[in-house]
């Protein structure tokens, strides 16, 4: 763990968000988004990211993407190409240049 840096504001976090498997349809069909999250005192985690996505990116039918304070069951989340279940799920703290992928499994096969 890095030592805490007092009450300095953390730098903004630049990340890449990707939506696939049909989840992109809730985002105007756009699969890839480069976003910058403003610097804040506490590090960004996935839980906060989901709120941010809902406020800033999600275009329609939010109930198909979020449920409670998590993603809707049936949406897979990958953090830097690894299953988020291995990475701490909602508590994972975002690092600069992270790649977060949301894939819907809810679409027909």
């Amino acid at each position: 763990m890095l030592p805490a840096c007092g009450d300095n504001m953390a730098a903004p976090v630049r990340i890449i968000l990707e939506f696939g498997g049909g989840a992109e349809l809730l985002f105007d069909g756009m699969k890839k988004h480069h976003v910058t999250l403003a610097g804040q005192e506490q590090p960004w985690d996935i839980k906060q990211l989901l709120v941010w996505i809902q406020r800033n990116l999600l275009k329609e039918r939010p109930e198909l993407f979020v449920q409670g304070d998590s993603v809707r069951p049936g949406i897979l989340v990958l953090i830097n190409d690894a299953d988020w279940e291995l990475m701490g799920e909602l508590e994972y703290q975002l690092q600069d240049q992270d790649n977060i992928v949301f894939i819907s499994t809810l679409h027909g096969g």
Partner: peptide, 21 residues
């Protein structure tokens, strides 16, 4: 499991179509 099928396709970069009817 569906989760594994989707991740298999994702990691293998298989070309599939996903839109609702």
């Amino acid at each position: 499991y569906e989760k594994e099928i989707v991740l298999y396709a994702y990691f293998k970069k298989l070309d599939y179509f996903s839109t609702e009817c």
